[in-house]
Simulated assay, not measured.
Amino acid sequence: MASSACVPSASTPGDAAGLRERARGALLGLAVGDALGAPAENMKPSEIRARWGRITGYVAEHPAGTDDTEYAIFSGLLLARHGSALTVAHVEAAWHQWIADLDEGPFRGAGFSERGTLENLRRGLAAPISAQHRHAWSDGLAMRAAPFGVFAAGRPAEAARLIAIDGSVSHDGEGIYGGQAVAAGVAAAMAGARVDAVVTAALSVIPDDCWTSRSLRRAVAVAHRGERAVRSAVVIGGYPWTDLAPEAVGLAFGAYAAARGDFRCAVLSAVNMGRDADTTAAVAGALAGATCGASSIPEPWAQAIGPARGSCLPSMRGHHVLDVAELLLPAGESS
């Protein structure tokens, strides 16, 4: 796919205007990617082609973010409240206050990792035991990691530290590593890092020999060969679940690297590769949005994103990702 690569400006964490543009780009990019990818979730590329040809924009009549956007808002609000002083106790309390202790109605609460976490919390279990369920390796932490990169702009290690605290309630092992890679990548992009440096930052905060690291490296190494090569490098053929963190994070970084950070190309590449398309496109959108800023997001796509509908988390209804972006900026840099 041809791409007019975005060349990030040499902004620093002290550049207020640049930080605000990137923060808005990261979280709006996440929501746009989520909404674009939602209809293609759990589909194969061949199924996508048979139904829509190549997806080049919204295919839903009323596009909206899914659990990916609403959980990112949840984590963003939590982080804005506590900042670097965030503790596991804060995260547990927020899960109870905003999710677990509410009457959420049928089919609410998001994916397998979130459902398992909620069941454990409602049984009175606490972290890290609350994360001991069958999907602790899912991409549910990666999907909500971007706010940590926005908050810790230019500090990938701090972003990784904070997302691990958030994730300890719901994830373990590869699930944590996936979230850390995304948070660190966004943190690097927020400071104006180029694509290769963003990838390096993501890899720097997770073990070299973990599955997520191997998947991410394989995807980026073949990204120049296109979507089929990226998909072949990381997808676990025949495995029924599409929410594996190593797979989703690999696909997202592969799409981002193939597009050289270009927002439109990165997100559409992630969408058209299928699998957990809302999450992979949300992560690719957060990375590319932080790299190139909110102005890189096509206006019709951006305009479709309104306040969260609360379809997954009723307590997040009415919150907008752009408001969360403002909250995560350092004091005095949100105006």
Rank of each mutant, 00 (worst) to 15 (best):
R161Q: 11
E119Q: 14
A110T: 02
I99R: 02
H96N: 11
R115T: 07
H135R: 10
D103E: 14
L77I: 05
A126R: 15
L102A: 00
L78K: 05
A89C: 08
A100S: 13
L86V: 06
W95K: 04
H133R: 09
P106Y: 07
P156I: 03
A94R: 14
H133L: 09
A164G: 13
R108L: 11
P147D: 05
H82C: 06
F74R: 00
A93Y: 08
G154W: 03
E119S: 14
A94G: 00
A157R: 15
R155E: 14
R81M: 00
I163Y: 00
P147W: 01
L141Q: 05
L118E: 06
A146G: 05
A126H: 15
A85R: 15
G124N: 12
P147S: 10
L79S: 09
I73A: 00
A159Y: 02
T87Q: 14
P106R: 10
L86F: 08
L141G: 04
I165W: 01
L86W: 04
F107G: 10
H90C: 12
R81Y: 00
I129W: 07
A100C: 13
A164P: 00
F107M: 14
G109K: 07
W98D: 15
I129C: 01
L77Q: 10
T87E: 13
A152C: 15
A157T: 12
E92C: 13
G76Q: 03
V91A: 12
G109I: 04
F148H: 12
A127R: 02
S84W: 00
E158V: 10
A127Y: 04
G105K: 08
L77A: 06
R144V: 02
R155M: 07
F112M: 13
E158F: 04
H90E: 11
G149L: 08
A100H: 11
L102H: 02
